[in-house]
Design a protein around this nucleic acid. Structure first.
Lengths: 229, 229
DNA sequence: CGCACCCCTATCCAACCGGATAGAAGGACT
DNA sequence: AGTCCTTCTATCCGGTTGGATAGGGGTGCG
């Protein structure tokens, strides 16, 4: 089958002629993502590049097992795969005594999450909207010790403004909605924004109308589905 | 670049299969997904196969524009890309007078959503956890007019049960949680499940403890993040 | 200026929610 | 039988939410 080239991820031992002794040893990269399509893709690309040695894992447990076995120069870690629980999981992995450099890769995460990841010490943040070419370049960049993140994504210039929701909502209403998605009460939101609670309730009511929700839980789910926050 | 790996990977074994003497012309496929990584992948792959003609779109608007211009034999439609709003968007696209066969592709959608998509008349459902090989086979299958969906995914055997949440919750609590994520009130949930409201409240309280939520909105967000429902 | 719009505050009230507590029926397992 | 677990029901209470109503400031615009 043609797919052999793709699916032969060759976990270890990479038999290959594409090894180039030019720069000393190869760069060892671990791709941890539950999307096999993506793993196939990246393995394929990196195998065509000189100086890379790629292994894969489909969930957090096996990823950590591999990290414990052998050191990696860079780990591409999916933000949402089995075993992952947001930034907390990243922190835990980075807290390991033998922690490698870790870059977060995600298809759904927001710029906010990207910033949190970078603040936690991630080597970079890679949205899956990146092209394969850009991703390989980013990996090279991070492998040199730099921190990478696509600027247009962080600036929110990404896909956020296209949301019809944010267009309709005022600044305050968006802030209130954000607090709502965090599961906060009106009282907490009021304190955070330094306004009175009745005001929060007003914004709440108006934004319900605007986005078509009938209670706070629905509003939170709508915001979540829209990819906000 | 590494395309040689792809193009050289022509399988002699299947080459006869992919010829479509009945139709004469190539099979036209539209890939609509905002993840450029995935588009790169599939385009490269299908270009290495005979009998396929592939075009791409990064959002719903441009996808529909392409559909209006020329007919496609199959459209791979990302469930969550700019312009998409769940099953409703699929229904709208399928309601077009010149509607092509449409398969939903998603990295996050649940088995429940997959079934809804198939019930709405989708040609298939493709989780991104599929391997490249399986995906190509699925496309061939769907192109023959069949309806495709990975059975183990639909049975929930996929990544659903791996969720630590569903393990801890009882059957009833899960049902209550599902109603919660739909934004329903306790009263509505009670009616739907044909139990009394106090009972719903009890389940609600206990499931809060189990999943670590302090109110219904947080519980809903946790369930959503876990990929439930 | 008048007007629209956004943001802020306030009060009142019905309804709902979160939590505690208590009791009971059925199935499963020892 | 006894025990545990799940499910169901119920009542009480304090707190929160949703909705209506009535204002007061601020900015921008014709």
């Amino acid at each position: 089958m043609t797919q052999d080239a793709l699916t032969s991820a060759r976990p270890a031992g990479v038999s290959s002629q594409e090894r180039r002794p030019g720069r000393g040893s190869d760069m060892r990269i671990l791709i941890a993502d539950d999307h096999e399509l993506l793993r196939d893709m990246l393995v394929l690309y990196f195998e065509g590049e000189a100086g890379f040695e790629v292994e894969t894992a489909a969930d957090r447990a096996s990823a950590e097992a591999r990290m414990a076995e052998t050191p990696y120069d860079l780990v591409l870690l999916d933000y949402s795969m089995p075993g992952m629980d947001g930034i907390a999981s990243l922190d835990e992995i980075l807290a390991r005594p033998d922690a490698p450099r870790v870059a977060i890769i995600s298809g759904t995460a927001s710029p906010e999450i990207a910033e949190q990841a970078l603040a936690s010490g991630a080597a970079g943040f890679l949205p899956k909207t990146l092209s394969a070419r850009s991703l390989v370049n980013a990996v090279r960049f991070m492998a040199m010790g730099e921190q990478y993140a696509p600027l247009d994504f962080l600036r929110g210039g990404d896909e956020g403004p296209a949301h019809p929701l944010t267009e309709k909502l005022s600044q305050r209403e968006i802030q209130v909605l954000e607090g709502l998605t965090k599961g906060k009460s009106n009282k907490e939101i009021a304190r955070d924004l330094d306004i009175r609670e009745p005001t929060v309730k007003l914004h709440m009511k108006t934004l319900y109308r605007k986005i078509g929700a009938s209670n706070r839980t629905q509003a939170a789910m709508i915001a979540k589905d829209a990819g906000l926050f």
